[in-house]
């Protein structure tokens, strides 16, 4: 027994187009991509049932092997129902996106952008503790210390952690001095 090549080829084409569309930023195309993928999977499920035999209604005296396998068809039916519901929901989401922002695109996560852009240096946690150890440093002191450290080392903006330690700059310069003679 050999699988149905036509179905497999169509399913492959659907997969390829579906994945291409899924990678787009426009939501409508993403939805179309999902639909194509779903249908590709449905065809794949259908091919797993083997060749198309008789309709699987029981009649006496028929060889059981001549029926087609009804189980994959039941799978496909379930999968179609589910993808129908999800498509409806996605359409509602897309419409709502359009209502809210007049845009049909996958939006950026702003909080994510903010976290990515923030400096690794947090005044409250990373600033020098004052010698008298009285309390946490105030934000003003910490900001001043930061500014002073920045002024001392122009490159320190790239390495904020080093900038916090007042003596980090001469230390970091140390190895270079040793390398130069070599």
């Amino acid at each position: 027994m050999s699988p149905n090549l036509t179905l497999l080829l169509i399913s492959g084409v659907l997969f390829a187009c579906g994945i291409y569309l899924l990678l787009e930023r426009s939501l409508t195309r993403v939805l179309l991509g999902l639909l194509m993928l779903t249908n590709g999977v449905n065809l794949l499920l259908l091919t797993t049932g083997g060749y198309a035999g008789l309709a699987p209604f029981f009649s006496k005296g028929t060889d059981p092997r001549s029926y087609s396998d009804p189980l994959p068809q039941a799978f496909v039916l379930t999968s179609i129902v589910i993808s129908f519901a999800v498509t409806g929901f996605m359409l509602a989401l897309i419409y709502r996106t359009w209502q809210l922002g007049r845009a049909d695109e996958v939006a950026d996560d702003l909080e994510d952008r903010r976290v990515a852009a923030q400096s690794g240096w947090v005044p409250e946690e990373d600033a020098d503790v004052p010698a008298d150890l009285s309390e946490f440093p105030s934000l003003v002191e910490a900001a001043e210390a930061d500014r002073a450290a920045l002024a001392a080392a122009p490159h320190a903006a790239d390495l904020p952690d080093d900038a916090v330690l007042g003596d980090a700059v001469p230390l970091a310069a140390g190895p270079h001095d040793e390398e130069e003679p070599e």
Binding site: T48, R65, Y67, L71
Partner: peptide
């Protein structure tokens, strides 16, 4: 695709 072992006509789990 390893369809070779598909039940092809047999009922599933047959």
């Amino acid at each position: 695709l390893p369809v070779g072992q598909a039940p092809g006509g047999q009922a599933p789990g047959g």
